[in-house]
Simulated scan of single mutants.
Amino acid sequence: MLQNNYKKLTSKQKKVFDFIVSFIDENTFSPTILELAGFLGVSSLRTVTQYLESLEKKQMIVRAKGASRGIRIVQEDSLSETVMLPVVSAAGCDNMNVFAEQHFDEFITLDREFLGGNDPQKVVAFRAMGDSMASAGIETGDLVLTEMTTDIKSKDKVVAIVDGMALIKQITFSDNAVILAPMSHDPQYRPIIMRRDFQVFGKVIEVIKDSFSQDELVYEAI
């Protein structure tokens, strides 16, 4: 079906779709609207959105509402299957001010495809608190989808547990230290340098903006 739908695209729609496919193949994540605008050489984000809406209507892609990199290519054997993820407590984007206590009073439901192939049993959501990760698009109230994994590399955005507190930071490994750095232009936020044991809960895989209501966090393939 995907191949038949591809034949129905206009030349410009094929150009956008092919770029998205190539971008995902190269980076393992999808482009943002700004990156698509740069590729197309347009200043209007609405123009990009119209292309994406057309690709959705022709069942070439699906998008996660509120996710900055939420474009997914429709697979031939994809099913419109949703998964429910727990929202675990909150994670601080400030300086160690949110305890990592687990609360499962809140859940989000989303299409399995938006997990990027990750096992739903290993993905949870943290609600962000603070703005020290604002430059990474993570702000207070946002839901941060996190894969529980030990496969962490330098410059990954992670949820780390320090002194029983959950922090969202960018991690860097050096020869004799681990640095948990903010991603903000605000000088009040400074890196945390670790020389002792601490726990990395997992790696950030997606951010769902707080501007969307809970009802809108039920994603469906279009």
Results as ranks from 00 to 15, higher is better:
K122S: 15
M84R: 14
S22P: 05
T32F: 02
F17G: 03
R63I: 05
L85V: 11
V16M: 11
G41L: 10
F17M: 06
D77Q: 07
P31V: 07
E113W: 01
T82W: 02
L45C: 06
V48C: 10
L55G: 04
R46V: 11
N27K: 11
E101W: 01
V16I: 12
T49Y: 08
Y51A: 08
I33N: 11
L40E: 10
G116V: 09
T47A: 13
S78L: 07
F23G: 01
D18V: 01
L34Q: 14
K15C: 09
I108L: 08
L36G: 03
D119L: 12
M129A: 13
F114D: 00
P31H: 06
T109A: 03
E81K: 13
I73A: 01
S80N: 13
S89N: 13
S44G: 05
F39M: 08
E76P: 11
R72P: 03
I61C: 01
L85D: 10
F126N: 02
L79M: 10
V87S: 09
A125R: 05
A125C: 13
F104P: 05
N97W: 05
V48R: 06
V74I: 15
E101Y: 02
V98D: 00
D18N: 15
D25M: 04
L34N: 15
T109F: 04
N95T: 10
F104A: 08
V87D: 06
L85N: 04
S80F: 09
D119V: 10
A67F: 01
S78P: 06
R112F: 02
L55H: 01
T28L: 10
K122F: 07
A128I: 08
V124N: 09
Q102M: 04
S54D: 14
D94I: 03
L36P: 05
A128V: 08
A67Q: 01
D119T: 11
M129V: 12
D77F: 06
N95I: 05
L36F: 01
L40P: 03
D111C: 04
V42T: 14
M60A: 05
G66C: 06
V124Y: 02
A64T: 15
S30P: 09
Q102E: 13
R72V: 05
N95C: 08
Q102F: 03
V83N: 05
A90H: 04
H103E: 15
S22T: 12
G92V: 06
R112I: 12
V123Q: 08
I33Y: 11
F17R: 04
F107P: 00
V124E: 04
R63E: 09
V98T: 10
Q75T: 10
T109K: 07
F99S: 13
I20S: 06
M129S: 15
E26P: 06
V62T: 11
E113Y: 02
G38H: 12
S68K: 11
F17E: 04
M84L: 07
Y51K: 08
T32H: 07
E113D: 08
I108Y: 01
I61G: 00
E113C: 11
H103M: 15
L36E: 04
G70D: 09
Q102L: 04
Q75M: 14
S80Q: 12
I24A: 03
E101G: 05
F107W: 11
D18L: 00
M84K: 14
I71F: 03
E53V: 13
K65G: 04
F23K: 01
V74M: 10
F114A: 01
G41I: 08
L110Y: 00
D25N: 15
L55D: 00
G92W: 03
E101P: 00
I33E: 14
M60D: 02
K65E: 07
T109P: 00
